[in-house]
Amino acid sequence: MIELGKIQVLEVVRESDFGVYLNSKEEKSENDILLPNKQFPEGTKVGDELEVFIYRDTADRLIATTIMPKLTLGKVAELEVVELTHIGAFLDWGLQKDLFLPFKQQVGKLQKGDKVIVGLYIDKSDRLCATMKVYDVLSCKSPYKQNQSAKGLIYSIKKELGLLVAVDYTYHGLIPSKEVFGRYQVGDVVEIRIKKIRPDGKLELSMRKQAYQQIEDDAQKLMRILEERDGILPLNDKSTPERIKAELNMSKASFKRAVGRLLKEGAIMFVDNGIKRNW
Rank of each mutant, 00 (worst) to 15 (best):
I2N: 10
L4H: 03
E15R: 11
F18D: 12
S24T: 11
E26Y: 11
E27M: 07
K28I: 00
N31Q: 02
L35N: 04
L35S: 04
N37V: 15
F40Q: 11
P41A: 04
E42I: 07
E42A: 10
L50H: 03
A59C: 05
A59S: 12
L62R: 14
T65Y: 05
T66Q: 10
T72N: 07
T72I: 13
V76Q: 04
A77V: 00
L79C: 00
L79A: 00
V81W: 01
V81N: 08
T85C: 09
H86I: 11
F90H: 02
D92L: 04
F100H: 08
F100M: 08
Q105P: 05
Q105N: 12
K109M: 13
K112V: 15
I117N: 01
C129K: 15
T131M: 07
M132P: 03
L138A: 06
K141C: 10
Y144Q: 15
Q146T: 15
S149V: 15
G152H: 09
L153N: 05
L153S: 07
Y155D: 10
S156G: 13
S156W: 11
I157Q: 02
G162S: 10
G162E: 09
G162V: 08
L164K: 14
V165S: 04
T170N: 06
L174R: 03
F181K: 12
G182H: 10
V189Q: 05
E191K: 13
E191M: 05
R193N: 13
P199S: 06
M207L: 14
R208S: 08
K209P: 04
Q213R: 15
Q214C: 03
E216D: 12
E216H: 09
D218S: 08
A219I: 10
L226V: 08
L226I: 08
P234R: 12
K238E: 15
L248C: 07
S251Q: 11
K252M: 13
A253G: 12
K256S: 09
R257N: 14
R257A: 13
G260C: 07
L262M: 08
L263Y: 05
G266V: 06
G266R: 06
A267P: 04
F270E: 13
V271T: 09
D272M: 11
I275N: 01
K276R: 14
K276E: 14
N278H: 07
